[in-house]
Amino acid sequence: MKIAFLADPLSTFKTYKDSTYAMMVEAAQRGHEVYAFQQKDMAVAQGVVTARVQRITMTGDSHDWYRAADPVDTNLGEFDAILQRKDPPFDMEYVYGTYMLELAEKQGAKVFNKPSAIRDHNEKMAITQFSEFTSPTLVSGDEARLRAFQKQHGDIILKPLDGMGGAGIFRIGADGMNLGSVIETLTGNGKYTIMAQKYIPDIVKGDKRILVINGKPVPFSLARIPQNGEVRGNLAAGGLGVAQPLTERDFEIANALGPILAARGLLLVGLDVIGDFLTEVNVTSPTCFQEITQQAGFPVAATFIDAVEAAAAVK
């Protein structure tokens, strides 16, 4: 197979933990041809979607880990699979990229995750479709509504809808200290919509990343445990990642959402669960492959490439 990865610059990869790197290694070990390009490399001319794509050879060295051939302008429909692995921010440039990939699908490309499905599943907002699994949640940019939510629930979390890695997350206690300032900051004085959620004390045990591949959960999560007084467990915010078996509730959530999301074209999803509650549905570039494999021994990358091979083979 010819597999192309739409990703951030390869030079920025931290190979000891990068999930896209693990995917590339697994694909190359199976004899697949691995290619890479960035969103800026795509173009549409006379209705045809192309990209300046480089073939990647893995060196086996974790530092100087790849060799890249000269870029070649290639019709994206020529690839057996295109893996969308660009990190947020999910800005308009990201949206334009999904439009291009969606057009490429009509020209024969198979893209995972499906571009329209990525576009339709904001990673924060998506949980509102599954409210039976969430803690009390409000989505609004209205100060009065946000203040009423805090008054009702006391200890709450406020966060932007377009962040990643724990950026912009605030905890407001029952006393409401600094609530007005946080609302003003996050909403831009009412211009932007944000999310408020009742604080879940089980965050001290970790923000669990549950990977779901083609509708089926990986049996281990990575609990990202806040450190040094932080409220955020995200690894990017200094959280400690600990692999652990899924709980009965974890399986309940993953098994309920998995088939629905897979049917929508989301081959790989990262569900975030704190305690017994769903907090995010990650669809852009879910991570934690390597940490789970290293600690629990479960072959996440191999399981994912199995799913890619099967999905690409479907006519």
Results as ranks from 00 to 15, higher is better:
69 A>V: 07
151 K>P: 08
81 A>K: 10
64 D>L: 13
225 I>L: 02
98 T>A: 10
211 L>H: 01
10 L>T: 08
255 N>A: 13
189 N>E: 15
260 I>H: 11
71 P>R: 04
306 D>H: 05
113 N>S: 08
116 S>P: 04
273 V>P: 05
314 V>Q: 15
257 L>C: 09
75 N>M: 15
157 I>A: 04
65 W>G: 08
147 R>W: 05
260 I>E: 10
96 Y>E: 11
133 F>V: 05
173 G>I: 02
113 N>I: 00
41 D>Y: 00
57 T>L: 11
199 Y>Q: 07
29 Q>D: 12
210 I>K: 00
160 P>V: 02
130 F>W: 03
206 G>A: 05
154 G>I: 01
21 Y>I: 02
201 P>S: 05
290 Q>P: 06
212 V>E: 02
196 A>V: 04
33 E>S: 14
235 L>T: 06
214 N>F: 00
59 T>V: 05
288 C>R: 02
91 D>M: 05
144 A>I: 13
247 T>H: 07
315 K>W: 12
108 G>E: 08
147 R>E: 12
261 L>C: 00
109 A>N: 01
165 G>Y: 00
101 L>A: 03
56 I>E: 04
92 M>S: 15
260 I>K: 14
188 G>S: 00
38 Q>H: 15
295 Q>M: 03
309 E>H: 13
3 I>G: 10
117 A>F: 12
5 F>H: 10
126 A>S: 13
33 E>Q: 15
119 R>Y: 10
310 A>C: 06
218 V>W: 04
139 V>W: 02
70 D>A: 15
13 F>S: 09
280 E>H: 05
39 Q>A: 15
10 L>F: 07
208 K>W: 08
153 H>V: 05
187 T>R: 05
203 I>E: 09
142 D>Y: 06
35 Y>W: 10
293 T>C: 06
49 V>S: 01
160 P>Q: 03
170 F>Q: 14
17 K>H: 12
6 L>P: 02
163 G>H: 09
151 K>E: 14
214 N>R: 08
207 D>T: 03
311 A>I: 01
184 E>V: 09
91 D>S: 09
270 G>S: 11
305 I>D: 06
249 R>C: 11
183 I>D: 00
64 D>H: 12
262 A>G: 08
78 E>R: 14
64 D>P: 12
48 V>Y: 05
260 I>Q: 13
296 A>Q: 02
294 Q>I: 03
304 F>A: 04
146 L>T: 03
208 K>E: 08
161 L>H: 00
106 K>M: 12
73 D>L: 15
14 K>P: 09
139 V>G: 07
286 P>I: 01
26 E>R: 12
246 L>A: 07
91 D>Q: 11
35 Y>V: 06
304 F>V: 12
153 H>N: 09
264 R>M: 13
65 W>D: 09
96 Y>K: 15
23 M>I: 06
115 P>T: 06
